[in-house]
């Protein structure tokens, strides 16, 4: 199975990179783009063939390394 893990900053955590992107978009004439937030996506293949087992493993990875619960949220998608 494949896992796609999306890591985003929690609401309320300052995102200076998102703010810089928002400002650059405005500079290019894209009007009305607000609240730009930058995150990261991590994709991987997992040996598990069972979706629940794959999700449990990805969840464990997020808790132990991939995300920092102090300032980040994560969302896991398990794909065939």
């Amino acid at each position: 199975m494949r896992a796609k893990i999306t890591i985003t900053l929690k609401n309320g955590v300052l995102d200076p990179q998102g703010a810089a992107i928002e400002s650059a978009l405005a500079g290019l004439g894209f009007e009305g783009a607000e609240g730009v937030r930058q995150g990261k996506v991590i994709e991987m293949k997992l040996a598990e063939t069972d979706e629940a087992a794959a999700r449990a493993k990805a969840e464990d990875m997020c808790k132990k390394l991939l995300a920092n619960p102090v300032m980040e949220n994560y969302a896991i998608e398990i794909l065939a």
Partner: peptide, 17 residues
């Protein structure tokens, strides 16, 4: 130290980038 949890909180990208 913050990433190990020995100290609380986290160090993020400088506000001024």
């Amino acid at each position: 130290l913050c990433e190990t949890g020995l100290l609380p909180g986290a160090l993020m990208r400088n506000a001024g980038l």
